[in-house]
Amino acid sequence: MQKHFEIAGKKLKSRLFIGTGKLPTYKIIPQMLSRSKAEVLTVAVRRINPDSKVENILDYIPKNAVIMVNTSGARNAKEAVRIAEIGAEITKTDWIKIEIEADTRYLAPDNEETVKATKELSRKGFKIFPYITPDLITAKKLQDAGAVSVMPLGSFIGTNKGITAKTLIEPIIKEIKIPVIIDAGIGRPSHAAQAMEMGADAVLVNTAIAISKDPVKMSEAMSKAVESGRMAYETGILKEEDYAKPSSPLTDFLNN
């Protein structure tokens, strides 16, 4: 297996990105990173109030972790651009995950607004990781707009249903040249392994880790699944066959 993979100008060892939403406490973040060896974390952006009783997440993120700012809360491209610029200013990161939603029922990303925001932010020099409903045409537009990656959802956020959008993601992996990171819907390590077997370059997992009984352990389990899935992909996954193949083909007798 290759030692590193390159993305947006950085060399990473781990193909597991972890989201920090829904966590019961930020205190476990250092352990999650050390046990899973994940290097990339997403964070969201919000006002800090002077008398807040809330802990500051930055106190728990190691200095060498790669922070990806998520624009969640944005309902359109304009809001996403604003959140991205503000977030980027905080730790001088230029990795931005564009998440634009206006529907509280499914949290379905707005692909059109995402393309708009990607165009504007890429022009300004940000490294854009757009989160989308898997659509090959949108993915092509994002590639043309200068995104460094596309992040198609496996299933809607929080549903833990696995890679239900498999048939829509496969063409994206095949046709798109920039890295494809499957994000959302990964509910168990086997889903993460499947994503990697499909040929995804990385996965982003949030809910399944954050709400598990032991997020630290689950992050490690996810990491192992990502490694094994990638290893299998690089070795060559066997095709699924519709019928049993005998070890001696039926027509072998003709060769005797």
Partner: peptide, 26 residues
């Protein structure tokens, strides 16, 4: 307002300030 200007920048009456930070998010 970039960090290197925090010391120099003066705040006038009637100004609006937002302080924004990170929280957990996907």
């Amino acid at each position: 307002i970039k960090k290197d200007r925090w010391e120099k920048t003066e705040i006038k009456d009637g100004d609006k300030i937002e302080i924004v930070g990170f929280v957990g998010g996907g």
